[in-house]
Design a protein around this nucleic acid. Structure first.
Length: 506
RNA sequence: GGCCCGUUCGUCUAAGGGCUAGGACACCACCCUUUCACGGUGGUGAUACGAGUUCGAAUCUCGUACGGGCUACCA
């Protein structure tokens, strides 16, 4: 049996968005499930749109998600090079072969001539005429020119492309793992350019040649490729490689509020669409990524996997290991799924709650550090994380939920305290300071016990004292249970904060 | 316009001819908690429409409507 090999082929022209990463994810899961290879190939043949640094960015994203490929420009396997620009000659060879075998032809039409053609043939019922069997005999190509003319043009280095010659009246059948059989009439597909005038291949040629040469067994890509699938199928056939053709699966699209999810949606609706921060090279705009927004990679992978797939049970929280075991391409939906940021946040919340304290240490301390809080005592930090993690939806929430452990309040929510503040309550806290000094075991339950006993002795409801106590410790009506806060703060700090607040309350 | 794909609560989805169409997010109410959350209990809410096949249709077939994608020397 053939070893499973899947590939992902990003183009370094933009950020890696949700749909792209989900495609990587499904590729990755499938490969790992079958002990196969996961190959990353870079589609950089469109030099005009190439963004320097985008390749590194893609690798960083994959690393953060834990979806690193076995073979790529960075981890060479036996089928390199892995950048299409470095395989230029290869594609040319096969394109020429197709011409020789009569499956493709040279076309000398200039962009301007194509423009004229589209304009002239445009009608009410056909707003976008294609370069197809209907009009190719009206254009300048090796089918309409004589052999001598063609030879002359080629020898003079006239700019030309190679186009596939799509037949008329044939039916191509695509077998898709998700969608079943799809029938296409070859006559309705245009004569796609295979090799561009600059000698670079288009996606159509490259994907077929690379998949063959790299021995790819399964090709998973987005649904937007479905309409050009017949071209690829025919190419496999024309090149004589039909028996090696991979199995196909066209993944449903991830939709935004209106249509295919785009970076516009990110800007407009304020949710991330990229794994990591991405700076638009054209506008210089920063588009925030899931990582920077405060997502755990485990949560990110989890909700992405569930956007278009489920295992048939009611389980929603999956580890990568579980996904690897349970993922089934046949259970991927055929309909597109709208991205719901609220649900994505819920997944993150679940993952933060589920995470061990020690696995959050690094992220939390760097978030605090960014806000100017340097954590020195790891033990102290662990206690804080344990206390507040259930209240954090995003990692960045850790700052709002815990800054008061590191800095005594400068201001107090006096409106919450003043109206009910009495001399009796003031005396209570003065004596509570003494009570605290006598507490041997500084733990939440003992502090609470001492607090309540003292309140009872002074004939004040303990409940009425808790809010002032809270405001004394953190400055306002927020935070975890107040005695837990005191316990984490420590005896000395608690006393100091009460004293400081007592003067502020007068 | 043509071609292709799709359509179950607002959103993600389960149910592959047979209980009252199930779960999750969001929303609402109550409980817990003298902060805010977490948590718990409950609630509102869906098979796009029309035919056909069948004892029986969300499920199969056809049509319509709607949504999406493609229609580049971009991927």
């Amino acid at each position: 049996m053939k070893k499973v090999r899947v590939r992902f082929a990003p183009s370094p022209t933009g950020g890696l968005h949700l749909g792209g990463i989900r495609t990587v994810l499904y590729n990755y899961l499938f490969a790992r499930q079958h002990n196969g290879d996961f190959v990353l190939r870079i589609e950089d043949t469109d030099q005009s749109r190439y963004v320097p640094g985008a390749e590194e960015y893609i690798f960083d994203c994959l690393k953060w998600c834990g979806l690193e490929p076995d073979e790529s420009p960075l981890h060479e396997g036996g089928y390199g090079p892995y950048r299409q620009s470095e395989r230029k000659e290869l594609y040319k060879k096969y394109a020429e072969q197709l011409v020789k075998d009569g499956f493709a032809y040279y076309a000398f039409d200039t962009p301007e001539e194509l423009e004229v053609m589209r304009h002239n043939f445009k009608t009410g019922t056909n707003p976008s005429p294609q370069y197809d069997h209907n009009i190719r005999m009206k254009m300048r190509n090796s089918l309409t020119l004589t052999d001598d003319e063609v030879r002359k043009l080629v020898n003079e280095n006239t700019k030309h492309v190679i186009r596939i010659k799509m037949l008329e009246g044939e039916t191509v059948i695509l077998k898709d793992m998700i969608r079943g059989e799809i029938h296409f009439d070859t006559g309705i597909v245009d004569d796609k350019v295979l090799l561009k005038a600059d000698g670079m291949p288009t996606y159509h040629l490259a994907v077929v040649v690379d998949d063959y040469l790299m021995k790819i067994t399964h090709a998973f890509r987005g649904e937007e490729w479905l309409p050009s699938a017949p071209v690829h199928l025919l190419l496999w056939k024309y090149l004589g490689w039909e028996k090696d053709m991979p199995e196909w699966a066209h993944l449903p699209l991830i939709l935004g509020p209106n249509g295919k999810l785009s970076k516009r949606d990110a800007l407009k609706y304020g949710f991330p669409v990229f794994a990591m921060n991405w700076i638009d090279p054209k506008t210089g705009e920063l588009i925030e990524g899931f990582r920077e927004k405060g997502f755990l990679p485990e949560a990110f992978i989890n909700f992405l996997a569930l956007l278009g797939w489920n295992d048939g049970t009611e389980q929603e929280i999956f580890t990568k290991e579980e996904l690897k075991q349970k993922f089934l391409m046949e259970r991927v939906h055929s309909g597109g799924a709208k991205f719901d940021y609220e649900k994505a946040k819920w997944f993150n919340h679940e993952w933060i709650k589920k995470s061990e304290v020690r696995s959050l240490r690094f992220e939390v301390s760097s978030i605090l550090k960014n806000k100017g809080i340097n954590v020195t005592d790891e033990n102290h930090l662990d206690k804080i994380i344990a206390l507040v993690k259930d209240r954090c939806t995003l990692l960045t929430d850790f700052y709002d939920q815990s800054y008061f452990f590191f800095n005594a309040p400068e201001q107090y929510d006096l409106n919450a305290v003043k109206p009910k503040w009495t001399g009796g309550k003031k005396r209570f806290f003065e004596s509570f300071i003494e009570e605290i000094k006598a507490i041997d075991i500084w733990e939440s339950a003992f502090i609470e016990d001492g607090f309540k006993k003292l309140a009872m002795m002074q004939d004040i409801k303990a409940g009425e004292l808790q809010l002032p106590f809270r405001v004394m410790l953190v400055g306002g009506k927020f935070g975890p249970p107040v005695f837990d806060i005191a316990a984490v703060l420590g005896k000395q700090e608690t006393i100091q904060r009460i004293q400081k607040a007592l003067t502020a309350f007068d």
